[in-house]
């Protein structure tokens, strides 16, 4: 087909940031998928609860300590996380490097606390359906912490490599930070469901 040029795009930036970035939208879409998954897991929990004669099934309510510490830890991690996102936006390589190291540590810490959450449930996954769903919910969320941690570690390594100082990397860092916010945000309803609903 014949063409007539009606528009000049040469002045556009060579890479989109924020809502102009494809990965930003991709991350959002994956968050929607996983958010639906979390919501369904909570729905399964409540469904099983509605059928059970007593809840928790053959177990005392979970101990609060580990879960609460983890929750506080996650909430605390939001502040450096937001700072990293801001530094990434400013493309400040030095600060971003420091921030990423901090965030890597803040990814490892909840994993350590998580180890104590499983026994705090007072029963195993194969004892009854209550045990199954709480283990799966904890497991599901742990996988998310773990994947985001690995992502953060790889990004940290990248930022110390020659590929680091590049707008595209900074975009990746803010997407990663957004994803961490999501990991924290999904934990809050899970925390309430796992630790407080049985005490109602």
């Amino acid at each position: 087909m014949k063409q007539t040029i009606v528009l000049d795009l040469s002045k556009l930036p060579p890479h989109g940031l924020g809502t102009a970035s494809l990965t930003w939208w991709g991350t959002l879409a994956f968050m929607l998928i996983e958010g639906t998954g979390f919501a369904l897991a909570i729905a399964v929990y409540l469904y099983l609860m509605s059928l059970a004669p007593q809840w928790p099934l053959h177990a005392p309510a979970p101990d609060l300590l580990a879960g609460t510490v983890l929750t506080l830890l996650l909430i605390a991690s939001l502040f450096p996380n937001i700072l990293v996102a801001r530094w990434a936006k400013a493309q400040d390589l030095r600060k971003v490097r420091i921030g990423l190291i901090v965030m890597s540590l803040l990814g490892i810490a909840p994993l350590i606390v998580r180890v104590f959450e499983f026994p705090a449930m007072h029963l195993n996954w194969d004892q009854n359906a209550y045990g199954s769903i709480v283990w799966v919910m904890l497991g599901l969320h742990t996988t998310h912490i773990l994947t985001d941690l690995i992502d953060t570690l790889v990004l940290t390594a990248l930022m110390f490599s020659r590929h680091g100082d590049n707008p595209r990397r900074y975009g990746d860092i803010s997407d990663n930070a957004m994803y961490w916010n999501f990991v924290v945000a999904t934990w809050l309803p899970m925390y309430i469901c796992l630790y407080w609903v049985p005490r109602l």
């Binding site: 469904y47 059928l51 996954w125 194969d126 009854n128 359906a129 045990g131 199954s132």
Partner: peptide, 20 residues
């Protein structure tokens, strides 16, 4: 959940253990 029931013995679908 089905694979877990089959492989590691979770009880999601077993009515005898609170599953449905």
């Amino acid at each position: 959940a089905l694979i877990l029931d089959r492989l590691v013995g979770t009880q999601f679908f077993n009515p005898a253990e609170g599953g449905d």
